[in-house]
Amino acid sequence: MSENISDIDYKQVIEYALEPLIIHSQLKIIYVNRAAEIFFKASKEEIIGASPLDIFKESSKSAIDKRIQNAYERPANVIEETIYRMDGTTVEVELYCHPVLMGNTKAIQTYVRDITERKAAEKKQKEMISQINELSSTLVPLLDEFAVLPLLGVFDEERARQLLERVPANVQKQRIKCLIIDFSAIYNLDSLVAEYIFKISTVLSLLGVRSIITGLRPELALVAVQLGINFNSTPTVSTVKAALDLLGIEYNKDSSIQTENK
């Protein structure tokens, strides 16, 4: 025989839910589940009766208060916040709340999800991307006034934009007169990203810096043609070695010394 949904004890459902749940009304907490006790490092007795605003930083309380008042009528959007546990430690969380009825009392049920690990991973990823971006705009010196810019990895619009900003500045800082831009480690670029990167040679030209493009694959060359990139003033050769030959620079593999033919 099937059970009637009205027979389900929802208090048991939320009590044993794995994520912390708080029910509050008129800025007073009236219920927390077991997971919330563990998360906030306090007992039900210590939490119930407190204001839900108490867990937030002072700078967030006004916006949270407004959010709570609106949530009596409709579910609120998911937000990320830093909140306090009962022992004073802070934690990054994701919050979602919606209206509920406790008998005849309008209340709000709030779900709390710990996102500390996710935020830490995102921070680490951003730091890695920043390091990659810094490395990608590093000029490898050959001789005085000569350098190579090896383009590495996957480029999105933001990374390409940063490259366009940093390379001309680095060129001027290192007093480079000729820059070899090597595409051999780039396999795919969309047209918007490609446009940023190909603009580097144009900007360098305005600065009086000669540029040579190497390692341009057929599919990337096609993108350049579609963008109307003019290579009349920018030589393109297959390899960095070919560019060195074009410049009259010889590389002594045995001694790792680079010399310029006179």
Rank of each mutant, 00 (worst) to 15 (best):
R67T: 01
R74A: 05
G215D: 02
S137M: 00
Q226W: 10
V112C: 03
V91M: 05
T202V: 12
E260H: 14
L222P: 02
E134T: 15
E45A: 11
K253Y: 11
R113M: 14
G88D: 13
E37C: 15
S191W: 04
H24Y: 15
S25T: 14
Y31D: 13
Q174A: 10
K28A: 09
E127S: 11
D7E: 13
R67N: 03
N104W: 06
L143V: 01
I55P: 01
L101I: 00
M86W: 08
V154G: 05
A121Q: 11
M86E: 00
F183R: 09
L163H: 01
M1C: 03
A76T: 05
P168R: 09
S184Q: 05
E37S: 15
I79P: 02
M102E: 13
Y84G: 02
E15S: 11
L142A: 04
Y72V: 01
F231G: 10
K66V: 00
P99E: 02
I5N: 11
Q162C: 04
P218F: 14
G208K: 00
Q226K: 13
P235C: 06
D254Q: 14
K253A: 13
Q226L: 10
E165W: 00
P75R: 08
I14W: 02
L142R: 03
A76K: 02
K177I: 01
A243T: 07
A63P: 03
I200S: 12
I23T: 07
L220Y: 01
E250N: 03
L149T: 07
L220K: 00
G215F: 05
I48V: 13
A50D: 12
I68D: 02
F56V: 02
S256W: 02
L189S: 07
S6T: 09
G49T: 10
Y111Q: 12
Y31V: 03
